[in-house]
Write a protein that binds this DNA or RNA. Structure first.
Length: 520
RNA sequence: GGCGCUUUCGUCUAGCGGCUAGGACACAUGCCUCUCACGCAUGGAACACGAGUUCGAUUCUCGUAGGCGCUACCA
């Protein structure tokens, strides 16, 4: 019988969601949607020590921003709840007992201190078939002894009883069959005494079973414990409905060694979190892709291609396209270095393909941060008009202004001169040095005369007045003109810019340049 | 140390026994041009190594080396 595809993303609320987690969730999403299945959001908060307030809300908000939607789970509803593991204590207790009754697990009284002592005493100590009979557990004690200790309030854990000497095979969709001998596995703790909660291993298997999960798509760091999980499914007698596994390659640091981790924060020069995060304990703030000006679609697209590709040359694609093209079995096996420079390129692509009118909110903020909002009301109207013009201008096909921007914020240095006249000129600037010499002031004075006589200050009228003069005299006024209006070697066509600024402002700026650049 | 995974340009990758080893990012150069640049064009740049299997290996097998992960009463 074909089961409906059900996958889950199950983060631990120990802090902000990091970019590798985003990719794991994304792959789960793509897989679920492609098969018409469900994506479940489960919170694995079985480590009470590492719980961080606000993390859960942060994760939910992140996915909302990213456009990755869940079908059920914490905050999304569904009839397989509760979806927060801390609310499922009774369920785990019941299943731990099942294992105990079936002699698949046992009770151990060894304290953390005793275990540390053992580890110090014996090199490479491992709690397993070869050592468990020398430890303090229900395998070496009578039932009465065990009950007595429990009644006396001694703390205990429940460990899985791994039978040694057999090969456990994990079938992985990405890696094929991975075989490991059970003798190298240890009797992992399934139920902790410290907080009366199960460990990841037990909770994970019980929940995936009860939530009818069909495919477990998670990071490669889980591969070593996958055999344990297979053994647990067997111990429960659930092997027929055991999910299929897929272990994703890890995201690595762009330089240096190791995987990308939360602790990398901003140290590497780019965010590792989707949204800005304020740590409630340390008070530190970590930057986020959203706040950096990334478009969620761009980030998602970039991330999707780290470890998977459709097998052709297509790189820019929407979430819907990815759903169609995604193929778990075509994921790469080796870890991928996180090259955020390519992420910038993706943002550039998405920004360019977005109509400039959609940039308005970000552009507004940009002007604000640059003090444009503080202008008096009348001036504000002008700014509004200019802003609209800039955006129209930016949106024009083949327009130079549209280029060289990966983020809306890149726009400011490129369009600053629309709003603010140059207040000084850097004489060491290569462009200025090259285009402003002793004769330039004279040429600019002539230009001012000519422009003063243009009544309707349109591009065409300016051209009609300036071009013949330039041709007759052989003068080339444009670069110096640019120096005056922009203060640098950038910007649009001079006629266009002048028309935009208006006759008065244009002449004012040229005159200012003449005095500033020629008096010395 | 033990166990497992992995290895194509600097980076992300295509390739699934026979290819001038393809694309993208980044880099360099050129074109365009009143500037910066977008775009376009061009260029440099890779099959870790050693055995085997085979008529033939980037591709299959085994070693070696490198990388990565796990090795907690964390997930």
């Amino acid at each position: 019988m074909e089961r409906k595809v059900r996958v889950r993303f199950a983060p631990s609320p120990t802090g902000p969601l990091h970019i590798g987690g985003v990719r794991t969730a994304l792959y789960n999403y793509l897989f679920a949607k492609q098969h018409g299945g469900d994506l479940i959001f489960r919170i694995e908060d079985t480590d009470s020590n590492r719980f961080v307030p606000g993390a859960e809300e942060y994760i939910i908000e992140s996915f909302k921003w990213l456009g990755i939607n869940f079908d059920e789970g914490v905050s999304f509803g569904g009839d397989h709840g509760p979806y927060r593991q801390s609310e499922r204590k009774d369920i785990y207790k019941k299943y731990v007992q099942v294992l105990l009754d079936a002699d698949k697990a046992y009770i151990a009284f060894d304290t953390p201190e005793e275990l540390d002592a053992k580890r110090a005493e014996i090199e490479n100590f491992q709690y397993d078939a070869s050592t468990r009979l020398m430890m303090r557990n229900s395998l070496v004690m009578s039932k009465e002894e065990v009950d007595q200790l429990i009644n006396d309030g001694h703390q205990y854990v429940v460990r899985i009883k791994i039978e040694p000497g057999r090969d456990v095979v994990v079938h992985d969709i990405i890696r094929g069959d991975v075989s490991i001998n059970s003798s190298v596995l240890d009797d992992k703790v399934l139920y902790k005494s410290a907080d009366q909660l199960p460990t990841y291993h037990l909770a994970n298997i019980v929940d995936d079973h009860l939530m009818e999960v069909t495919h477990v798509i998670r990071g490669e760091e889980w591969l070593p414990s996958a055999p344990l999980h297979v053994l647990l499914y067997e111990a429960f007698g659930w092997q027929d409905t055991m999910p299929q596994f897929a272990h994703l390659p890890l995201l690595l640091k762009p330089v240096g060694n190791g995987k990308l981790s939360k602790r990398d924060g901003d140290k590497l020069g780019f965010p590792v979190f989707p949204l800005e995060w304020h740590d409630p304990k340390s008070g530190e703030t970590s930057s986020g892709y959203r706040e950096k000006g990334y478009l969620p679609e761009a980030l998602v697209n970039f991330l999707a291609l780290l470890g998977w590709n459709p097998g052709n040359d297509q790189e820019v694609m929407s979430l819907d396209e990815m759903v169609k093209l995604f193929d778990l079995s075509k994921c790469s096996k080796a870890g991928a270095r996180f090259d955020y420079v390519k992420g910038i390129w993706f943002n550039h692509q998405y920004l360019l393909n977005k109509p400039a009118k959609d940039w308005t909110p970000e552009f507004d903020a940009l002007l604000k941060t640059n003090g444009i909002e503080s202008t008096p009301e009348k001036e504000a109207q002008v700014v509004e008009m200019m802003k609209t013009k800039v955006i129209e201008y930016v949106d024009k096909e083949n327009n130079k202004k549209k280029r060289n921007i990966s983020f809306v914020s890149d726009l400011w240095p490129l369009c600053k001169f629309f709003f603010v006249a140059p207040d000084s000129f850097n004489k060491d600037d290569k462009f200025i040095r090259k285009n402003w010499n002793e004769e330039t002031a004279g040429m600019m004075r002539q230009l001012v005369d000519i422009l003063s006589n243009v009544d309707d200050f349109t591009i065409e009228n300016q051209k009609a007045a300036v071009d013949p003069w330039a041709e007759q005299t052989g003068l080339r006024p444009w670069n110096a003109w640019r120096v005056a209006l922009v203060g640098a070697g950038q910007g649009p066509d001079m006629y266009e810019l002048s028309a935009f600024l208006g006759k008065q402002e244009t002449i004012k700026r040229i005159n200012f340049a003449i005095t500033s650049l020629s008096c010395e």
